[in-house]
Design a protein around this nucleic acid. Structure first.
Lengths: 196, 196
DNA sequence: TAGTTCATGTAATGAGTTACATGATTAT
DNA sequence: ATAATCATGTAACTCATTACATGAACTA
């Protein structure tokens, strides 16, 4: 069975909330699911065109001054059905490919100091993502709770669940970074004292 | 800058420990780094051939009865240098692509029961991996500590660090599964009581 | 007799990223 | 001035997986 692209369902899911242009989809992705899923324009635009040809979405052009036409896409019944079918399937579990871990595994070939730099770098990244998750959380809690559309209200618990995944994931990674730093400090000291 | 394959360094790192055939490399990968890195035969064999042509490794054939020749690869000085150069680089941070989370995010379109099935499925997977990690840990602690080669002894702390990453990562995922199950149970009950 | 281990590969596919291309408006 | 926002795309590339191909020996 050849691997199938899931981007399609990410886009259909977004369009199932509300009709949007490719540009707006990208924005919404970045603001909501970016901590576990990302899409590029160069993926979104051709996919929308393809889905339109296949009847999963329809497109309406809106003229604008001094800008390309805005193409607003709307999900069709067939698209909605396809989306629901996917929702009922067991999701793929991807294998990790962590270059950092590969370097840690071969870490004996490197000075502990150099390794610690890499781990500090990763730790900073985790902190960045965690801040970003805070922002998403604020967005969900404040902005969306005010728009008291019942449709959106009932979605919030699910958005928070996905947020919580990110929180736990990146917190665990950060904690590993701290533990690894400590262990490497210990190893570096052992090295020093054995060289004395 | 085009993305560069890191499989090359995974293989060079393995060959830097000891000379091996492609088949043996695959085995060792499965037994040591599979929780954060995997390689397939269909990637390994062509890569070894390519690296030989480029002078990063050399190959020696060993005849065997009733089996294809065993091709044992040995890292060269140039290969070792390339490996060390890579070790000094800051590793790539890959973006997550979690289909499960996508389905959770759009979970309002699905019954809580169906969602819980998916999460149970993922939880089982986490448990499987954690058991596997235990096995690797046993392998490292028992089998390798007995072979008291000082080279290997000094590598064990780094292998344990990479193992610890997996432990924390999959434990965090498992804990998220548990928390998510509880939250979904709560949501399902809310649904029920509002329908009464 | 069915599955695993040993041992090697090729071919095809597709998913995802990066680079390239254009261009006005608005905010810092 | 420079960066960000709005708005669309094409072309190229490569990474990684899956399917295919072969075949003997050993084990449950």
């Amino acid at each position: 069975m050849p691997r199938k692209s899931k981007s399609r369902y990410a886009l259909l899911g977004m369009l199932n909330m509300t009709s949007m242009s490719g540009y707006e989809i990208k924005n919404l992705c970045d603001k909501s699911i970016s901590h576990f899923w990302s899409e590029n324009y160069s993926n979104i635009y051709p996919l929308l065109k393809k889905m339109e040809a296949e009847g999963a979405v329809t497109m309406e052009k809106f003229q604008q001054e001094s800008r390309p036409d805005k193409k607003v896409y709307t999900i069709t019944d067939s698209g909605r059905q396809e989306f629901k079918d996917w929702l009922h399937q067991i999701p793929e579990i991807r294998k990790l490919r962590e270059e950092l871990l590969l370097q840690v595994f071969y870490g004996n070939m490197l000075s502990p100091k150099k390794l610690m730099e890499k781990i500090e770098h990763r730790k900073t990244h985790c902190e960045d993502v965690l801040h970003n998750l805070d922002d998403i959380n604020t967005y969900l809690t404040e902005e969306l709770s005010n728009e008291s559309q019942p449709e959106i209200q009932s979605e919030i618990p699910y958005w928070k669940l996905s947020l919580d995944f990110g929180l736990r994931f990146y917190t665990a990674e950060l904690e590993w970074c701290d533990a690894a730093m400590q262990e490497l400090k210990r190893l570096a000291q052992e090295d020093n004292s054995s060289n004395e």
